[in-house]
């Protein structure tokens, strides 16, 4: 698999680059010379940031693959199915009602809210008999907008706009040791998705087909969306929303490789990690010494690629 090797090499290169880009000087020679301040920046900030980038990128891309397979629509992902915004609302309510709760509890509530958001989304979809593939993300985007309006209302009422912004804008500049480790849990969830990939692929064939193959369709879909909700809630609570990532990476993988999930997942993970690393490095260098948050850059790249994907559908039709 030379292509896979090249892809991994590019990712390693980007990861290494991300260690040495930033306002505080960190260089190989400095580290070699044993300069303590450089080692401190590396261990406290750069290494955690790199890990967070890779974990968030890879798990969000896998969450995207899973969402698309289970909802059976190419254009959905956690940020346009009500999931990400619902997770944010859950976190906000926890901040408001139980500000002292440990982060793991906040994350758990966020996960539950994300699942509830997905349930609402699926309930609306069931009421639309005509399943136009373009209609599904459209309803999702609008539902997300409504949930976000609800969050904004709460945030304005209780003067919590700052906390809301922290989750809505994917930003890794604040990542430090001790503040990102939950992402490893997301990685466990994503790993679980890979482990059960075949089941999800079969569930993605639809209720009738899956049932005739002897699969308990409802249960598998619920499990899959629970994993996605968990990953989403963790990413939102640790680094904020990264829009479109779960959408464009899986689509490009699918264009290149087809839709077998077991094969698609590792590629999606590599692609997601690489894309987030790239965007974050770009955000750090483009207006040095300031930073453009990774969420902003993904917003531009992601919506442009999404547009290209929908327009591509026009030609195929």
């Amino acid at each position: 698999m030379p292509v896979l090797a090249i892809a991994i090499a590019i990712n390693l290169g980007l990861a290494a680059l991300s260690l040495f880009v930033g306002v505080s000087q960190v260089s190989l020679s400095g580290l070699w010379a044993g300069q303590d301040d450089q080692w401190l920046v590396l261990i406290e900030s750069r290494l955690p940031r790199m890990a967070a980038l890779i974990l968030a990128g890879a798990t969000m891309a896998i969450a995207g693959v899973l969402t698309q397979t289970l909802i059976r629509n190419r254009f959905v992902e956690p940020s346009n199915t009500g999931m990400m915004e619902a997770a944010g609302l859950g976190l906000l309510l926890m901040m408001l009602l139980f500000p002292a709760a440990p982060i793991i509890a906040k994350m758990a509530v966020g996960t539950v809210f994300a699942m509830a958001g997905t349930a609402i989304f699926l309930a609306i979809l069931r009421r639309v008999p005509m399943r136009d593939p373009m209609l599904v993300p459209l309803i999702g985007i609008m539902l997300s907008g409504i949930i976000f309006a609800g969050s904004s209302f709460v945030a304005y009422r209780f003067d919590m706009v700052q906390s809301l912004l922290a989750w809505t804008q994917g930003d890794l500049s604040g990542v430090m040791r001790g503040r990102y480790e939950l992402l490893w849990l997301a990685a466990v969830g994503a790993g679980l998705a890979w482990f059960a990939a075949d089941r999800f692929t079969v569930a993605g064939l639809g209720r009738d087909m899956a049932s005739s193959l002897g699969l308990s369709h409802g249960r598998v879909v619920a499990l899959g969306l629970a994993i996605v909700s968990l990953v989403t809630a963790i990413v939102v609570v640790s680094v904020g929303m990264i829009p479109f990532l779960g959408l464009i990476v899986p689509n490009i993988v699918s264009l290149a490789l087809g839709d077998n999930m077991r094969r698609a997942i590792p590629w999606a993970a590599i692609g997601g990690a690489g894309l987030v690393l790239f965007c974050d490095i770009l955000g750090r260098v483009i207006i040095m010494p300031y930073e453009v948050p990774v969420g902003t850059i993904m917003g531009v790249i992601g919506s442009a690629v999404f547009l290209w994907l929908i327009a591509g559908r026009r030609r195929a039709a």
């Binding site: 373009m134 459209l138 300031y290 453009v292 902003t296 917003g299 531009v300 992601g302």
Partner: peptide
């Protein structure tokens, strides 16, 4: 539906671009 979706995403793209430029 496609025109709607394209319009909505175009809106998101414009908004993101504007935000990016403002930053």
């Amino acid at each position: 539906h496609r025109i709607l979706l394209i319009g909505v995403v175009v809106g998101i793209l414009f908004r993101s671009l504007a935000e990016f430029l403002q930053r």
